[in-house]
Write a protein that binds this DNA or RNA. Structure first.
Lengths: 275, 275
DNA sequence: GCGGAATTTCAGATAGTCGAAAATCGGCCG
DNA sequence: CGGCCGATTTTCGACTATCTGAAATTCCGC
């Protein structure tokens, strides 16, 4: 509230840290201790205990013997609410598992909401190589990723145009599409084919194939993707393409079949998957 | 920090409220506004904006047009971590869906962790009647619920004995089991049958049938339950029993098949579902 | 019952909350 | 297209809660 910092607007330290702690506890599979958390998150030990005590009182975490902590029953409630909005439906998660079983390569499912594509879940392959910043919750580089191209291709053209209007397409690898016209042509091809391919446009040494799926109204709502090291791409491309297309078709069928009216306060009705 | 209050230990207001806000935003399906949240949670409007600003900066929520808020990409990351520990595996959620399809009655799945049974997910029947305090995250009344009896029956006897040693079994309905010996006999029957029945022991007018499922080591890890109004119980009991037993058998098979060793710091090994 | 680790306590310095008012934003009309 | 209005969002000063660093206390396994 006094710093002449760049950003400006103040943020609540306690809340930010508390969420970090909760996430870290959940990520640690019941092995988290106050000491480790405090070091890992750069929080003073006393403060960390205070945060944990608060989460404990709320039932968000549980204390195990030996000073270890795990998520508690209240987290199940929070989780259910988040899952409904931010996670893939269990039915789609199962389709993802099937996709992975068929391809044996790292498989991803992403959701399209509010003009953002969010990585929701993935299953790593046996020969897994991770792409650095890519993790659940990742959004960004709309022009460079197969999954994004797969969605963009099926959005109204004017909406896509507005989205990239005056935006410089930054190259993240030498092969990234940086030209607007080129991107338009590429999206047209994706639309024609029904799936998108990324040949090292987002990450060097990695190729992906993505296919979008649609809700009952025909709008794209998400994407299945499979990634593979470039060295294996030639040989696996056909299988990957078939896999993501099948997964997407299954998901679309599911979403079309089970749409239910879901009342929303001000009288609107929004489609939503029955669960 | 000055109140001569009962509880004593202080808790962090900011964190507690921030979590409430996040959960409320997720629960509101994108219709949440600062004004509504502040009223609903009893938080001052200005404070509510401050909390939202923090969540916004962290990417936990997103601002929609018209001052509405929805969960953001960072929530997907938190969600994934929580889901792993506090939610049912997608495979089990799918079994739950199947159970519901077969019985057309409200169906539940609960998980047994750290000596607590937590309601993880449920699907309401068409003739749904909700049992007041029962919602995702609920734990308690170990002796009165079918799902709890189903787990307790398959735990080592001494562990169960220790758990109830000197604890008064409070009656929540006239039919609740309040006698320790009676409970022991009931658990023996559950163990023999492989499933548990609740005839208005937890909530008047509601009967349930539950069957537990087991991990690769044979320990119970969760339960499937179906509930029904007492008026329909006679006629549906056979179907319900068959349904939960089948669901439980499928879950057990799944868990046995896909158990992987999962290292824990101090050398223990805990079973855990491969995903 | 001991000994080290986990957890709480303390006092000063910061950061967050309240209530109300001011500044912005966004949509709509002319 | 610019101005206006209601609604959203930030700001402000006074008050209260929380953070820090270090020390005291409680816990728990042995």
């Amino acid at each position: 509230m006094s710093e002449p910092e760049a950003g400006g607007k103040t943020v609540l330290l306690t809340l930010e840290r508390g969420l970090q702690v909760l996430e870290a506890v959940a990520a640690a599979d019941g092995t988290a201790t106050a000491k480790v958390l405090s070091r890992q998150l750069g929080i003073k030990l006393g403060t960390c205990y205070h945060l944990l005590r608060t989460l404990l009182a709320g039932g968000y975490v549980v204390r195990l013997s030996g000073g270890r902590y795990d998520v508690g029953h209240r987290a199940a409630s929070l989780n259910r609410h988040l899952q409904r909005r931010a996670g893939p439906a269990p039915e789609l998660a199962v389709i993802l598992a099937r996709l992975h079983d068929r391809t044996h390569e790292t498989s991803y499912i992403s959701g399209w909401q509010h003009g953002t594509l969010t990585l929701q879940h993935y299953i790593s392959g046996p020969h897994a190589m991770s792409v650095g910043e890519l993790d659940v919750g990742y959004t960004g580089h709309l022009h460079a990723r197969a999954s994004c191209k797969a969605v963009l291709a099926f959005l109204p053209e004017d909406q896509v145009a507005a989205m990239f209007k005056g935006v410089e397409l930054k190259a993240v690898t030498p092969r990234t599409i940086v030209d607007h016209d080129h991107l338009t042509v590429e999206l047209a091809r994706v639309r024609r084919q029904g799936y998108a391919v990324d040949r090292e446009e987002f990450s060097e040494g990695v190729c992906c194939v993505s296919a979008p799926f649609f809700d009952g109204t025909g709008s794209p709502t998400g994407v299945f993707t499979v990634s593979v090291p470039t060295t294996r791409f030639q040989e696996r491309q056909a299988t990957m393409t078939m896999g993501v297309r099948e997964a997407a078709a299954m998901a679309t069928g599911l979403l079309r079949g089970r749409v239910v009216a879901h009342a929303v306060p001000d009288g609107m009705v929004r489609p939503c998957i029955a669960r």
